[in-house]
Design a protein around this nucleic acid. Structure first.
Length: 419
RNA sequence: GGAGAGGUGGCCGAGUGGUCGAAGGCGGUUGACUCGAAAUCAAUUGUACGCCCACCAGCGUACCGCAGGUUCGAAUCCUGUCCUCUCCGCCA
């Protein structure tokens, strides 16, 4: 949620920012609605004030055992008007919020303007792309030969886009999770969290999934399966006022994630690149506003270190205005090199949402002088575990179809190779 | 799943229809004392929205889990709902 001050003081800026994202929202109408709501509020407050005053007067008279019928009559005359004004105010306010919650964050000036992912800008590359003396296979071919992934049985149990990890496949996934969590908690200063996987509706609103992306979420008994640990981690401090000294707060969590992937029909149908359920290690930070962009760099670097230590080549791109997510002002995607696909694929997405989520979830902190502020929230994958497993398989495959395990992962995996 | 108790400000805790945004305590902040700290004393200390002025400030409204209702007036009464705790049952 944006600061209403933008709407009141600089609607032209908001219009431009929405245009950059190719959003079609009637800003003038919002300005008009906001004005009307404030007017209503003033009228309502005055009515209530006069009622309160009279009621107190009645109380005083009754205490003195005096008649107050004339005052009661007077108050009763305004009762109808108060009710009507209040109802109208509530209705208008709700109408306004229904639209306001659909307004995306304003992109930062460093976010390139562009219509989609083809306008993302490469920032840097890391690692040497290995020359194979043979045609590298895709991960699902390798996994099939090594009996690591079972798509048929995944489909039997749960339908398409579900998979069963088997044997060394399951072990490799688990090793990656532990490796990542240890790295972030022991070396990057994150506190490990195991959050609930099912959350309430307002929690989904807090991080920006709802109301706009309701179709993406699995619902269960009026609650929702988390599409990312970002949701419970950011909302951990919803409706709280933190202390300035508490910041920055850094959380890391491994969770399964659940997404309906509506609208991605026909995309990535083979393998585990796009699943309804997948594992992810997530990083979240709460920072002071002036520190959030430095924190975004640090958070992205922390995610990159996972790939560096595993020896997986990648590049970092900054997302364009047409590709960036709803809540983010600036986002770096980390794309890992997949030799089997012969292309870079997203393995992490690191975003600064500024105070957008903090406002939605009502997360504040009290500064040293006693004023309350909204912290900035950041989130990033550190990294997507399934896609990381794909990257390990494809980058470390040998001509005979076996997989070498990256040096740093061996203590976690317990073997030097899979064959 | 059954039975009972309870949800009040950062925390503890009083308050059962009227000057209660709410006693008291703890904590926080500021000042005095002190070379400094502790102790002590004094003052101050909720959130959101709106109005007004932006030097400090000031005014109004709402909020005592949440949503309704009764009433001139609700933290207090009524209804619904959510949550927490205790005991029993079940269970990883």
């Amino acid at each position: 949620m944006l600061d209403l001050a933008v709407l009141r003081k600089n609607p032209e800026l908001l219009k431009k920012k929405l245009q950059d994202r190719f959003y079609d929202i009637d800003v003038d109408k919002l300005v008009e609605m906001d004005k009307e709501i404030r007017k209503n509020k003033s009228v309502l407050d005055e009515l209530l004030a006069s009622r309160n005053k009279l009621s107190k007067e009645i109380g005083k008279r009754k205490a003195k055992k005096e008649q107050a019928d004339d005052l009661i009559k007077k108050v009763n005359e305004t009762a109808d008007k108060i009710k009507k004004t209040e109802e109208e105010y509530n209705k208008k306010h709700e109408e306004f919020m229904n639209i306001w919650l659909l307004v995306p964050n304003m992109i930062d000036d460093s976010t390139p303007i562009g219509k989609d992912e083809s306008d993302n800008v490469e920032i840097r590359k890391w690692g040497d792309i290995k020359e194979f003396g043979f045609k590298p296979k895709e991960h699902f071919e390798l996994a099939a030969e090594l009996d690591m992934l079972d798509f048929e049985r995944g489909a039997k149990l749960s339908g398409s886009r579900f998979v069963v990890y088997k044997g060394l496949g399951a072990r490799l996934e688990r090793a990656l999770i532990n490796f990542m969590l240890d790295l972030h908690t022991k070396e990057h200063g994150y506190k490990e969290i195991i959050p609930p996987y099912i959350v309430n509706e307002n929690v989904m609103v807090g991080t920006g999934q709802f109301p706009k992306f309701r179709d993406e979420a699995y619902e269960t008994g009026g609650q929702y399966l988390i599409p990312t640990a970002e949701v419970p981690l950011v909302n951990l401090h919803r409706e709280e006022i933190l202390k300035e000294d508490d910041l920055p707060i850094k959380y890391a969590a491994y969770t399964a994630c659940f997404r309906k992937e509506a609208g991605s029909y026909g995309k990535d149908v083979k393998g585990i690149i796009r699943q309804h359920q997948f594992n992810k290690v997530e990083l979240v930070q709460f920072t002071k506003p002036e520190e959030s962009f430095d924190a975004l760099e640090a958070l992205t670097n922390s995610a990159e270190r996972v790939l560096q230590l595993l020896g997986l080549p990648y590049r970092v791109v900054v997302l364009s205005s047409g590709d960036i997510g709803f809540s983010a002002a600036k986002t770096y995607d980390i794309e890992v090199w997949l030799p089997g696909q012969n292309q870079y694929r997203e393995i992490s997405s690191c975003s600064n949402t500024l105070d957008f989520q903090a406002r939605r979830a009502s997360i504040r902190y009290k500064g040293k002088e006693g004023k309350t502020y909204f912290p900035h929230t950041l989130n990033g994958s550190g990294v997507a575990v399934g896609r990381c497993l794909v990257a390990v398989l494809e980058n470390y495959q040998q001509e005979d179809g076996s997989i070498k395990i990256p040096e740093k992962l061996i203590p976690y995996f317990g073997d030097k190779e899979i064959r």
